[in-house]
């Protein structure tokens, strides 16, 4: 998979891209180890079964990492300098769920070469994560 290499001038407000991703158990466990977030809601089946969710959740920040993939690989891709990101988690994502990630350029600042990108993640029709990224095109 190669990163796109879009220049600031090539990108227009309204431009968008999307991809799908499924996180499997080994990836959630690897993220738990990498991040140090070993919370049993993500790592312990029997604990998760006893909660309202009945199964283990994918870490919110593992889903958030898909925003990094979006800006680093899709829009703008190679020329991206990631400046800021906000995220809100709207619905739970379970191991094995297929997530669609859609990013749309909503604003371009000519003076600073900064793009504002709205990122929506969906599981079927349900929104699971909303985010806004700010990136500079270098």
């Amino acid at each position: 998979m190669n990163a796109k290499e879009l220049s600031f001038d090539e990108i227009k407000v309204g431009d968008n891209a999307s991809f799908y991703r499924v996180f499997m158990e080994d990836e959630v466990m690897k993220f738990a180890e990498l991040s140090g977030d070993m919370n049993p809601l993500h790592t312990d089946i029997s604990y998760a079964e006893g909660t309202q969710f009945k199964q283990r959740l994918v870490h919110g920040m593992l889903l958030g990492s898909l925003c990094s993939r979006f800006v680093g690989m899709c829009i703008p891709g190679k020329r991206c300098l990631y400046l800021s990101q906000n995220l809100s988690f709207k619905n739970p994502v379970f191991i094995g769920d297929e997530i669609e990630v859609v990013g749309t350029v909503i604003f371009k600042s000519e003076a600073t070469k900064i793009l504002t990108i709205n990122i929506v993640m969906k599981k079927g029709k349900d929104v699971v994560v909303l985010g806004e990224a700010k990136v500079q095109v270098i």
Binding site: F107, S109, T112
Partner: peptide
């Protein structure tokens, strides 16, 4: 730079 970009976005203007 982030401040400038936010001003431009919120007030729909370009500096």
């Amino acid at each position: 730079l982030l401040f400038i970009a936010e001003l431009e976005k919120e007030f729909s203007m370009s500096f």
